[in-house]
Amino acid sequence: MPTDRPIVLFDLFGVIARHQRPGAMDGMATLISASTDAFIAAYWDCRQPYDAGQLDASQYWTAVLHRLSVPAHPDVIEKLRLADIDSWSRVDDRMVAYVQSLRNVAEVALLSNIPTDHADAFLAAQPWLHHLDHVAFSGKIHAAKPDATAFHHCIAALHAAPADFLFVDDRSENVRAAQAVGMNGHLFTGYDELTTALDTWLPTR
């Protein structure tokens, strides 16, 4: 490791937090009497600018509903928005504890693709986030992985060199993007593999 100041940079969903709640897409589709397949396509096709802070929640859901030929009534948008936030609200308690424990031997930061309103809800519900060395949410920094700008934001915010970082994500394209800017990368496949990798990479506790 090139420095004595290691930084572990974590993805959120699929690593520390769980992926979207099973059945959530069906529930949101039912709210507007849409087929689940059509809803999923519209949801994801419109998502990138929402994640990157280029659309607010109202603009995003208006775009989704337009794709589905459903009127964009404010009360419908709010029901969808709240259901969406709830669907992404679960965390892995063992991973939360492990991430916090790493602060004894490293700086610990977070880089997540998450819209601004989701980020605000997550920050309110998960106080441990406030104790990390840096938290970068895509909607707030206006850059979403795998865009190199998101990684450069973390490098600048932590006043570090790219090689000081080990980036942990469950998506291979994001790990490759981190490596392309000079970070070390670990593709998350489970708790045991992660702890083994970090025990090798980090200084002895």
Rank of each mutant, 00 (worst) to 15 (best):
I77R: 02
I16D: 00
R18D: 12
S138R: 08
E78V: 01
A63W: 08
I77H: 02
I85G: 09
R18W: 07
L82T: 15
A161S: 15
R176P: 00
L123M: 13
K140N: 06
E173Y: 08
R67C: 11
L129M: 15
A42C: 07
V135P: 05
Y191N: 04
A38K: 09
P146W: 09
H134L: 02
E107A: 13
H152W: 15
V168G: 04
T36S: 05
E78L: 10
H186M: 02
D4V: 08
D75S: 15
R90Q: 15
V105C: 14
K79C: 13
W88N: 13
R21S: 01
D75G: 12
F10V: 01
P127I: 03
N184M: 08
G190V: 09
R81N: 11
M25D: 05
S58K: 09
F10W: 00
I141E: 03
P71F: 12
I7R: 03
H66L: 14
Q20D: 08
V76D: 04
C46N: 13
M95F: 10
A119R: 10
H73Y: 15
K145S: 06
S101R: 10
A52I: 02
L187G: 07
A180T: 13
F137L: 13
V15W: 00
L102E: 04
H159I: 04
D120K: 11
L198K: 04
A119W: 14
A160R: 00
A29Y: 01
V91W: 06
R5S: 12
A163T: 10
L68M: 01
R90N: 14
G27I: 09
N184V: 05
G190I: 10
V135Q: 05
D26A: 12
I155Y: 02
L123P: 09
A34Q: 05
L111M: 06
T30H: 05
L166N: 08
L102T: 03
A83C: 04
F165K: 01
A72Q: 02
N113I: 07
D170P: 03
A177N: 10
Y43E: 02
A177I: 12
P203V: 05
A125P: 04
R103L: 05
H142L: 05
